[in-house]
């Protein structure tokens, strides 16, 4: 069956509108209005209460910064581990490779809570519990499997030929990494960064256990509010929660511009 381009555009906007734009707009409207009672009057009552309550929560700003910081460190560690492990899995043949491959996925299969509880005791003995470093380490558990998978596929589609050629032309490891691997892996890097950041941001239980309440991330402040019946406050909080990864994404995009060959004024040949 052939689609006419116009049909395609229409169905695209319909799907985007109903599944993405409408819920987001609805959330924004909700954060400014009192809860609606469908059967009584259908008027909207405008209120700033949701936002004022949110901004008066005195741990909000510090929690946001801590979340950004922890997320950034988690992303960085993920990139280091994901790039090296992904490359090894993509290019090298060794004994037990498939076992290794499965092992890397295990953290996603085991219940995270069970892992966290076991790790907690070890972390207390090492003195890592109740510190942000401990929280960063436990956030690696649910994120590493994804970044290894994504970056491994990135390397597979890159192919080894390109890398071998650059070596034969005399490039060292460093310049090969900076000028070939990083720019060509950009789409994979982008998804890894965004995905791991969002996963790290939304961890509540493991942050609570390992951080022990000393590390108050945004999730620690946000999740208890899910039990509040005031949908106005909840909507305002949810928007704030969504703004954090968007902010992080913008920062990352700016940093990605500094990769080689990214200048928009570069003449493409």
């Amino acid at each position: 069956m052939q689609y006419k381009p116009r049909m395609k555009t229409a169905s695209f906007w319909f799907l985007t509108g109903s599944l993405f734009l409408f819920p987001v707009l609805f959330l924004i409207v909700k954060s400014f209005t009192l809860p609606w009672r469908y059967q009584a009057d259908f008027h909207m009552h405008f209120t700033l209460r949701g936002w004022s309550t949110l901004l008066s929560e005195n741990q909000l700003i510090s929690a946001t910064f801590i979340s950004l910081l922890i997320g950034a460190v988690v992303v960085l560690l993920n990139l280091i581990i994901g790039l090296s492990a992904g490359k090894a899995l993509a290019f090298y043949q060794f004994k037990g490779k498939s076992i290794m491959d499965t092992l890397f996925l295990l953290p996603l299969i085991f219940p995270l809570l069970a892992i966290a509880m076991g790790v907690h005791i070890a972390m207390i003995r090492l003195g890592l519990a109740d510190s942000w470093i401990g929280v960063v380490l436990i956030h690696l558990v649910p994120t590493i499997p994804y970044s290894i998978k994504i970056l491994r596929n990135g390397y597979v589609s890159l192919g080894s030929a390109m890398l071998e050629q650059s070596t034969s032309l005399g490039a060292n490891v460093r310049s090969r990494f900076l000028t070939i691997e990083l720019p060509l892996l950009k789409p994979a890097l982008r998804s890894t960064i965004f995905l791991t950041f969002v996963i790290s941001l939304s961890q509540y239980v493991i942050t609570a256990i390992i951080g022990g309440g000393n590390v108050v991330t945004l999730a620690m402040v946000y999740f208890p509010f899910l039990q509040s019946a005031s949908s106005t406050v909840l909507a305002a909080f949810s928007i704030w929660f969504a703004l954090v990864p968007i902010l992080f994404y913008l920062i990352v995009e700016i940093i990605l511009c500094f990769l080689p060959y990214q200048s928009p004024w570069r003449i493409k040949t």
Partner: peptide, 17 residues
């Protein structure tokens, strides 16, 4: 510090251990 009571007790239990 906002934290659910069950998580607090879980943490104390691990610390005791």
């Amino acid at each position: 510090v906002p934290m659910d009571t069950q998580n607090i007790l879980q943490k104390l239990q691990s610390e005791k251990q």
